[in-house]
Design a protein around this nucleic acid. Structure first.
Lengths: 235, 235
DNA sequence: CTTCCATGATTGAGTTCCGATCGGTGACGA
DNA sequence: TCGTCACCGATCGGAACTCAATCATGGAAG
């Protein structure tokens, strides 16, 4: 089983997203068209100001059509987020196939690269960072572990343990969860003032994550010839 | 000049927050009462679902009063965020007075402690992490540096350079900006599933920031017997 | 110290606008 | 050709927001 396969499967939808599953073909196009419109509108006016009318108009549909598929305004945003997550996962998979990572770090780096790519090409991707996550239960792995795991941390944990022998368990999940939060925060900060993404923040995100990973699992790490500060295994 | 003084002054309000500055005393109470109500409502129903009617009722005021002070619904949220920032700054000042930090790291650690305290005691503090920051320009220091600096990073930069000799400049600002993002992200994650704050995330946030700081400015020191990277008074 | 009143503060019914519905119409596919 | 799917948009309910009337305050005048 290839690492990238992990990122290509379907994940269970958390809660009913759409009211009606599309049957005919045109409706599938409508559905994604609505989300496309929502994505653009989000970029244009922000979350607070988005209205269903805007989405409908932008999608060339009527109000009723929006409500045929989504129960309310926020459900549209949730769906947008879900789709963004799905697409991000696919992009990670693609990136992994492309880069063929030989280490755990390179694998994680693929996830970072994919994240940056998404920010640059996917309208409305900011929703990943800014949406109110409280009310967006994500598919969690094992609450019994005393930690709810986001989709990315969960998938990476499986990939890294199976492929590169990192010991699977609460510790790995926790650390990946921390990594995901840190990387997402710094990267998003890089896109806050610069739509193309401030390269300094992007580079720093990579470096920070590399150091963090090395601190727990790695020895020394070379990158571009420059000596990167590395953390020794604590304890 | 004490370090904590830096965190006690007033900062310029970014954009007109309130329509009318309160003159009489009772109105000041009303204003903060409205924000108190908003904070509670935010915690209860989330951002999307908050209504001006809820805020008014919870504050024991009428709808009209809300609109006397705030131009619209989102303005209330913005004001709530501004106040949270103000209170956080005061709390950092208090924490610094209390802990009397001897190193740059200890100073930053005060900011972390204050952040955790705020999460625990200040209703609606989540707004710091979840609000759409795009439309909330914060008082920036010097856009000419090629980097917009958040209030915290800016203040910390001044404090750390003046008190502990860290070289002031774009690099320091950038690194503090990164630190702020990382710490806020990990800490907020710790409060996502646990209202009291998951201690593992809090501890990890401290550790990560300490390591990051040490990576640029520090050597190693001892703390609590365990080898924890700590920053010496630089220079 | 009391009265008085200009002005700040508050109210809540009313207006506008947006979120959401639903019955009617058109389009697909079998 | 008919049953079902998809779409529309007038319409309703409720939330955002206004404003003219009313109340409260605190300082000035006596």
């Amino acid at each position: 089983m290839s690492v990238s396969d992990l990122f290509e499967g379907d994940i269970v939808e958390a809660g009913a997203q759409v009211r009606i599953e599309p049957i005919q073909q045109r409706s599938t196009a409508r559905l994604s068209g609505l989300l496309d419109a929502a994505a653009v509108v989000v970029d244009e006016v922000g979350f607070d100001r988005i209205t269903t009318a805007m989405v409908a108009e932008r999608a060339g549909a009527s109000i009723g059509t929006v409500y045929r598929y989504y129960p309310d305004r926020v459900a549209v945003l949730h769906a947008l987020r879900e789709r963004a997550i799905q697409r991000y996962r696919l992009r990670v998979a693609r990136e992994i196939k492309l880069a063929d990572p030989k280490t755990a770090w390179e694998t994680i780096d693929c996830a970072i690269t994919a994240f940056v790519e998404m920010y640059r090409t996917e309208p409305g991707f900011r929703i990943m960072h800014f949406a109110d996550r409280e009310r967006l239960p994500i598919s969690s792995a094992s609450p019994a572990d005393g930690i709810e795991v986001g989709f990315l941390a969960g998938q990476l944990a499986i990939a890294l343990s199976e492929r590169f022998g990192l010991p699977y368990g609460p510790d790995l999940l926790f650390r990946l969860e921390v990594m995901v939060e840190m990387a997402a925060a710094v990267l998003s900060r890089g896109f806050q003032s610069n739509v193309l993404g401030d390269e300094r923040y992007i580079a720093e995100a990579r470096r920070v994550i590399a150091v963090y990973l090395a601190g727990y699992y790695g020895e020394e790490l070379e990158q571009d010839g420059a000596a990167v500060p590395v953390l020794e295994s604590a304890e």
